[in-house]
Structure formats: C-alpha cells, structure tokens
Design a protein around this nucleic acid. Structure first.
Lengths: 160, 160
DNA sequence: CCCCAATGCTTGACGCAACAACCTTCCGCC
DNA sequence: GGCGGAAGGTTGTTGCGTCAAGCATTGGGG
C-alpha cells in the first residue's frame, strides 16, 4: 500500500478508457436483455450455464462458481426464475444438503429464444468494431488479467 | 436482431474472458475502497472528478456526465457524501435551477488519502500483469469500444 | 408580456445485491 | 457411535440503483 508508484501517461490513458468500458458495458447488455427478454444479464447467464451443463442440471454451488456469485444471491435469483417456470429445484440424491437446479422446457426455450438478440448485441457493440488482430489481443490481455482476478479459474471453468 | 451470425471460436474465447473480467473487476475495486476508505468506487470516482475540476466544483449535470450516471443516482450519492461532510451543495448563481457540488476540505483530504491505495490496487491487478505492448493494445482496443459505447465522449470528457 | 415546453434537480417507491444469522447434513475423530 | 466442526442452502435485513412523478426555473414564440 506504500508502493507509491503512480501511473505513467500511457498507463493512465489505457486505464481511463478501460474503466469507462467496464462501467458502460454491463448497462448495454442489461438493457437489451431487459427490454427483449425481461431478464438481467446475470439471469440470462445463469440459464445459459445450465443449458450447457450435462442434463441441464447443476448443483447450486457449481452454478454459483460458474456465475461468480455468492450462494445467497444465487438462491434468490433461482427462486425468482423458478417462480417464472424456467428452473426447477430438486434435492440432490448423493448429498442431501445439496440442491440441484435444472432447466425446464420453458427455460430451455427461453434461452434459445433469447440468445440471438444477446449475441447480436455483443457483436454490434464489442466484436464488430474490432479487427481480427484486436480480438486476438483482447483474448490475450483478458487471459492475463483473469489469472490475477480469478486465480482458481472458477469463472472460466469451461474451456476456451 | 435477425443478424444471425454467431461468434467464431476466437471471438468466443475473447468474449468469455472479457465478460469475466468485466464482472470481476468492479468487485475488486469496490472491495479495496470499501475496506480502506469506506467508499464505493462510484463515490471515490465522483470525489476524484470534483478534485480535478476548476474550483473543485461542478454542476450536478456535469458531474453526472463525467461519472456516467443518471441524475437521480448522483443526487442520492451526493446527498450521502454531503452528510458525511465531503461535499457541499450550493445553488448556482447563473442558473437558479442548477446546483453546484463542491469538494470540502475534508473531501479533498479524503481523496488525497484514498488515492494511493486505489492506484496500488489498479497497478497490482491490471497494469503490472501487462507488458508495455499490452497496455498500448488495451488503450487502442478500449478506445475503439468507447466510440461505440459512448459516442458523445461524455465519460472521457477529460483528455487522455 | 405571458404561456408552455424544456431543462435541472430532488424525492419517494420498488427491486435487486450484500451481509449475517440460521438450519440441515456430512465427515473426521475420539 | 456420538461430538464438533465444516459444507451446502435458505431466509431476513439493510443499502444502493432505477424508475416515475414532481417542483422550480428558464427560454422562446404568440
């Protein structure tokens, strides 16, 4: 904390732009999903993780790890998604403390129906403005940062 | 929305990592500031913007633009910071609808005292892991994205 | 000169996230 | 085999962000 180095001009420039993007991007994603599917990005992401899981089912803890959320937060969100009919909770046979969350047919349909618009937003706002080289650089840089921010690789548990 | 292109493997890889960082980074920044200064990143950023402004004073609208927030949000946050003695509100002479927000002496001290730790966190988690080339690439890529996400350049009103 | 729309900001109500407290089940150990 | 601690989830409370009004001021057109 007494590491009293400041940022160089080049570093400061990059940092300011980076933090601006970090603040703005979630709003863009959330707005589109909210408007078109009445889902937050976190809700969509949770459903998407389930849709990619074997049997479209995950333990709460596993899903919390994949979505980088706390268990209490996930529990609340899953409760809402369950009430809306997208997710079904069931006790886990192997460990009776645990709860499995599974995608319902309606949930699967919701994800499939929502994905194109979301992907379109990502393309329009992030991918399309960048060149192929930019995308590679972005991949490399974010990979480096993830090693710092998420050492256990919980978030990126699924392969590149 | 019927632009039914999907993401290429390279794009998908970059996107997954990027979104992971976007989700994780705010938490890292907020945690450090909360722990060491009892401030959210947004509160710190607001104070920092004021500290760089002429007379350490800005109209609410101008500050909202710099911090990329809505006016209601800013109004609430400024109310809290005012109660804590870091900011003073005063009516604007030129336009009696407007409100000026100024840094108090305590607010200035708070920013000066908080900045080093915050910069240290940024260095440790974002800048240090990257090479000089990485930083340049990051600057270029985020600049490109900002043109899409913030066309009016409100967020980056101050020079690079 | 007056009216009316637009601007600048504030306030109140509601929803979601973080934190803490709690209950249940599992497991290691004696 | 039963005791204590750890792991897995759920439930309340508090705090912040968003949205919808609302009030005051300004500026432009009749």
């Amino acid at each position: 904390m007494t590491d009293q180095r400041w940022l160089s001009p080049a570093e400061l420039s990059a940092w300011k732009k980076f933090i601006a993007v970090v603040e703005l991007l979630p709003g863009v994603l959330d707005s589109q999903l909210q408007r078109d599917a009445d889902l937050t990005h976190f809700e969509y992401f949770s459903l998407a993780m389930l849709s990619e899981a074997p049997d479209e089912t995950l333990r709460m803890t596993a899903l919390a790890s994949l979505t980088n959320s706390t268990l209490p937060r996930l529990s609340h969100v899953v409760s809402r998604l369950e009430q809306r009919g997208y997710i079904l909770r069931s006790p886990c046979a192997e460990d009776r403390r645990a709860t499995n969350a599974s995608l319902t047919a309606a949930g699967r349909k919701k994800v499939m129906h929502t994905a194109p618009g979301h992907v379109g937003t990502v393309l329009a706002n992030v991918i399309s403005p960048l060149s192929a080289d930019d995308v590679n650089d972005l991949d490399r840089i974010m990979g480096t940062l993830l090693e710092k921010l998420d050492p256990e690789n919980r978030f990126q548990a699924r392969g590149a």
